[in-house]
Nucleic acid binder design. Structure first.
Lengths: 238, 238
DNA sequence: ACCTGAACACCGTTCAAGT
DNA sequence: ACCTGAACACCGTTCAAGT
């Protein structure tokens, strides 16, 4: 009759006695597999095998695979504040930019987070701490009320969207090398250039570019635009 | 020896003779299932059953489930330009905002796109047409070269990120009603408020708010910030 | 309390064989 | 050319039974 709790975070880990496993261990293993092989490589059976155990036993520690993903997500979210260092910065712009950069770096290390996170509410302790840090910076800058939420959301949105685009681009680049690829693509690209002149020019230009540097440039460009807009709306003025 | 083509779009549909199915039909069915039940509800066997056919026969039209998702993604991307109307707008800001609003509306209708799209390069005709439209607006506003790319990317990033956050919030709201939920959550929320004062205040305030309206407010807030920043960087000046 | 082993109800994909 | 039917190698999850 009673439905299960909607989130892992509302239900503490069970008390221990003579366990061979732990949530920490299972989550760590899951993150390692996700990093190495992406979401498609992760299965309960695979994790169990890696830990020298049967698949069924994992369900003693975790009620569902989905719940395990929630835990994995919060695990890597913890890296952002850990490495950014919570030391105070010169100004709110710099502090916010540092937070955003750390967030981006984490997402690039763990690209599976992007699809994992989509549509999933996120109440883990590390997610909360990260939000609090962002709110603290923006509150210090003078934002309050609904604008405080919206300002933080805008920055987070940019980070998320930018990394999503970035990983797509990177994915497109790999496997570009093969001869047959070039041949099959050439005709398609000619049609694209004919029907979409602006896009054609931009794609031609994209061929020569260093993806790494260009992604960073775009990230900074969008973030600067956003921060300019925030600065203009800052209650404190100037 | 020869690897399969990296994308559906580089390989045209096979010539027909006496088919009972078509790509259009299959993709349409897939989109309907995804809209109704999300990514977890979609299986090749399910689509086949819906079309009165065996699972294996789908592979005559589509080489892989992943490829089918690529097709589904471009299908719904087509809705954006179709409904936004390509009629010219008063200014570049309004035109860009209209495009972004249409994009957001489509993503809200088909939330599965967010996880589908993550990390997947996207060369479908509708994706290309949508990019061209965005580039045309920004080129008309005076942007060129790498800044043109970065400006469009910034707007798209905001749309993507904002809708991702929005769907998470909506998901968290559903199932909030149950009595046990309230009870279990209360204790956790008290701890959150204690450890994260700013966040605690914002969460308390979020309880009273109309999610629909607040999401639109945040979307507009972030977009306006961005457009302000773009305006300041516009080569044409003023 | 914790784990095994086996089972249930699914998957995506392949491929002979039919028409 | 197009589709069926059956198979292969997987899934997540449950649950009696062991220790």
């Amino acid at each position: 009759m009673t439905a299960p709790s909607p989130s892992v975070w509302l239900r503490p880990e069970r008390p221990a006695r003579d366990r061979r496993l732990s949530r920490r261990q299972i989550v760590g293993c899951a993150v390692a597999i996700l990093d190495a092989e992406g979401g498609k490589g992760l299965s309960m059976r695979r994790i169990a095998a890696e830990l020298g155990v049967t698949a069924g036993s994992l369900y003693w520690y975790v009620t569902t695979k989905d719940e395990l993903l929630e835990l994995a997500l919060d695990e890597v979210l913890g890296e952002v504040l850990a490495e950014a260092g919570s030391g105070p910065r010169d100004g709110w712009r710099e502090a916010l930019a540092a937070l955003a950069a750390g967030h981006r770096a984490m997402l690039l290390r763990h690209p599976w987070v992007l699809s994992d996170l989509a549509g999933r509410p996120n109440l883990g302790p590390n997610a909360l701490a990260l939000s609090e840090a962002g709110l603290a910076v923006l509150a210090g800058a003078g934002f309050a009320g609904a604008d405080l939420d919206a300002a933080l959301a805008a920055v987070n949105d940019h980070v998320l969207g930018a990394v999503a685009a970035e990983t797509s681009w990177r994915a497109a680049r790999t496997g570009e090398g093969t001869a047959e690829w070039a041949e099959e693509t050439a005709a398609y690209m000619r049609r694209v250039a004919r029907d979409h002149p602006l896009l054609g020019r931009r794609m031609a230009a994209a061929g020569d570019v260093d993806v790494e540097r260009e992604c960073e440039r775009r990230f900074a460009f969008g973030l600067d635009c956003l921060l300019d807009g925030l600065a203009a709306r800052r209650p404190g003025g100037a």
